[in-house]
């Protein structure tokens, strides 16, 4: 068990965490909304990709696109149904509604895709790269590259463009933003649709590493919570750093302490941080 390999593993895991957490970070940080169906959306994104490859026979890149489109449509549907709660900023009800919808997605996916574990064929997860004693796959490289690129683009978009400031204005005060001629409903809808396609993209990239199950739900993306809270709610740079840092922590903890308790260790890290710095790492 050498250190260099664990650093690679950590970056591989961490870029996956950050990739899956991007949608949540935007939703929470930029629009101040929550979505507890995130885990089931991740599961669905993975299964739509699997279905497109294994059953329809689409090539991997097209399957990714298909998953993003399906999830975007689903997101638009969900957000339209929840619009009244969103406009009144009723976070309590939104948390519960999204949790209920996630449970519906879990039941529906089990009916559609069956209860057996599946693996995604035709991806780069088997394309192994050996560098002396070290190894990783081309899929890992793809995840890391896409994650870095996505975070860069999203950061530029939200911080440097007019549209970004419109979204932040809506998050700050939807009613006031509407007075200035911004259609807050459309902004919320677009942000939610973005969250859903982002998690579909994350699922299509990260899920090929391990078998997928319709019941995996939130346990799979519990790290998203940790990343989002560690990074300082909604900070884009913070989430990327927290994701990579958490990946390294998980890799080393799993290799040198106890692989079965990595989630518990990450959670202990989160609790410790909440006591020392309740607002997260990114804030000063």
């Amino acid at each position: 068990m050498n250190v260099a390999q664990q650093i690679i593993n950590g970056l591989v895991l961490g870029s996956g965490y950050a990739c899956i957490a991007l949608g949540w970070t935007i939703l929470l940080g930029v629009a101040r909304l929550v979505n507890f169906a995130h885990g089931q959306l991740y599961m669905l994104g993975a299964f739509v990709t699997w279905f497109a490859i294994a059953k329809i026979g689409l090539p991997y890149p097209v399957a990714i696109l298909a998953a993003m489109i399906v999830l975007a449509l689903l997101g638009a549907l969900m957000q339209t149904a929840m619009m009244r709660l969103v406009m009144t900023q009723n976070l309590t009800s939104l948390m519960i509604v999204t949790l209920g919808l996630g449970y519906v997605l879990q039941g529906g996916s089990a009916l559609l895709f069956g209860g057996n574990p599946q693996t995604l064929p035709g991806t780069l997860a088997r394309a192994k790269v050996d560098l002396g004693p070290l190894w990783f796959t081309w899929q890992d490289v793809l995840v890391l590259a896409v994650t870095l690129a996505l975070y860069g683009v999203v950061w530029l978009f939200t911080q440097k463009t007019r549209y970004g400031s419109v979204i932040r204005a809506v998050a700050e005060d939807p009613k006031l933003a509407e007075l200035f001629g911004v259609n807050a409903r459309v902004v919320y809808l677009l942000v939610f649709v973005f969250e859903c396609s982002a998690v579909a993209l994350g699922a299509a990239l990260v899920a090929p590493r391990s078998p997928i199950l319709t019941s995996m739900g939130f346990n799979e993306v519990i790290m998203t919570f940790v990343v989002v809270v560690l990074g300082g709610i909604g900070s884009i740079g913070g989430a990327l750093l927290a994701g990579l840092g958490l990946g390294l922590f998980t890799a080393f903890f799993g290799a040198f302490v106890a692989p079965a308790y990595t989630t518990a260790a990450a959670f202990a890290l989160l609790l410790a941080l909440l006591v020392i710095r309740p607002a997260g790492l990114a804030t000063k």
Binding site: I96, V97, V104, G107, A110
Partner: peptide, 11 residues
Amino acid sequence: WNKIILGSVLA
């Protein structure tokens, strides 16, 4: 189906 019912009722 029970999952779908329970979750839908809640939402």
